[in-house]
């Protein structure tokens, strides 16, 4: 029987910014096509871990491979193209409409723009196509961020506190969409203050404290 493919392999990963350790020696292996939830208090290192996995901060010491890219010797720009990021802040240009934001992303990636209408419909924003992003509600902005990711179809989805500001309907929609993404074979890594409310997705929950993994349960 073959072992599952790993999307993340970290060994004693340390991230220092201005001498301050954001991650203090994380050892972690995550399998492809799974949902993983990273929890912990403020300052525990959740966002820093996601940024490391996205090639957005450099590995200071230790070793790591994400989506086949070595974090020490590989091309971090190449890694970034393989991941999709949804932050808890806005993830697009406020003065551009929903459609214009997605058009920019599609053209940057060399993707056809005729998929835009489909993804806006998928996230329930087909009636807000020409609305500037700054006029969307917090929940609609989160849905636009998801549309950006659906258009990109990344191998790994990095979602930083995606449930913040979402109502019950939004959370349910989000859970359904994450389920679809995992079934399509992509990996999802979510940061959240608390474990997921829904257990239907059977996530693996990793708890951080002080930049270290203190608990890991499936």
């Amino acid at each position: 029987m073959s072992s599952p493919t790993l999307v993340v392999e970290l060994s004693d990963a340390v991230v220092l910014v201005d001498g301050f350790p954001l991650l203090s020696g994380v050892t972690l292996e995550l399998e492809t096509g799974t949902l993983n939830v990273v929890t912990g208090a403020n300052g525990a290192g959740k966002t820093s871990l996601l940024r490391l996995l996205g090639g957005l901060v450099a590995l200071s010491s230790g070793s790591g491979v994400v989506s086949g890219v070595d974090l020490r010797t590989g091309d971090r720009r190449d890694l970034r193209r393989r991941v999709g990021w949804l932050g808890h802040e806005g993830s697009f240009y406020d003065d551009l409409s929903a459609k214009e934001n997605l058009t920019f992303a599609a053209k940057a990636l060399g993707r056809p723009t005729d998929e835009i209408a489909r993804v806006l419909d998928r996230v329930g924003l087909s009636s807000r196509t020409d609305t500037p992003a700054k006029r969307l509600s917090a929940g609609q902005r989160r849905r636009l961020g998801l549309a950006w990711l659906l258009l990109r179809r990344p191998e790994t989805w990095l979602l930083d506190e995606p449930y913040a500001t979402l109502d019950d309907e939004g959370r349910t929609f989000f859970d359904e969409l994450i389920g679809d993404v995992i079934r399509s074979g992509a990996s999802v890594i979510v940061s959240a203050h608390d474990p997921l409310r829904s257990n239907a997705l059977s996530p693996r929950t990793i708890t951080l404290a002080g930049g270290l993994v203190v608990s890991d349960r499936s």
Binding site: R80, W85, L86, S91, F92, R152
Partner: peptide
């Protein structure tokens, strides 16, 4: 106009 750090991060993952 490049926006918040969230926008910069999203755009960075486009690999321009």
């Amino acid at each position: 106009i490049e926006g918040s750090s969230g926008t910069r991060t999203s755009v960075a993952t486009l690999g321009l």
